[in-house]
């Protein structure tokens, strides 16, 4: 007996692949046109999260899974967000070590 195996639509799949390619292209444009700084880093982070959302949601199909599973995967990610903010902040306060 099989579980609910959701059907994937091929057309949607190519659309997602196109979006991922386009976002990567935009990242390249940003990399060579914008000056280094907080705004640039923030843009990269946002675009990366957009790409991650499409990969996890569409390719890995998490968007269409049962809600309990969806949140069981997403909620622990909050720890990573906290860890990132805390450690990068810590790093900026730290003297250089070699």
């Amino acid at each position: 007996m099989r579980y609910f195996l959701p059907i994937r639509k091929k057309k949607k799949l190519w659309t997602v692949a196109g979006i991922l390619g386009a976002v990567t292209g935009v990242e390249f444009i940003i990399a060579f046109t914008m000056d280094h700084g907080t705004a640039k880093t923030a843009l990269f982070v946002i675009l990366t999260i957009v790409k991650a959302g499409y990969i996890v949601g569409e390719f890995m199909h998490l968007k269409y899974e049962v809600k309990v599973l969806f949140w069981a995967i997403l909620v622990p990610i909050l720890f990573i967000v906290w860890m990132l903010v805390a450690f990068v902040y810590e790093g900026m306060k730290m003297p250089v070590f070699n």
Binding site: H36, F79, L84, V88, G91, V96
Partner: peptide, 28 residues
């Protein structure tokens, strides 16, 4: 598989965040 991937995500986050820590402690 999902829960393994979640734990693996933490491992990679550990590596990348440590990179972020060390990088932000060096002058640009």
């Amino acid at each position: 598989m999902w829960f393994f991937l979640l734990s693996d995500a933490f491992t990679f986050s550990g590596l990348l965040i440590t990179y972020g820590l060390v990088r932000s402690s060096h002058p640009a």
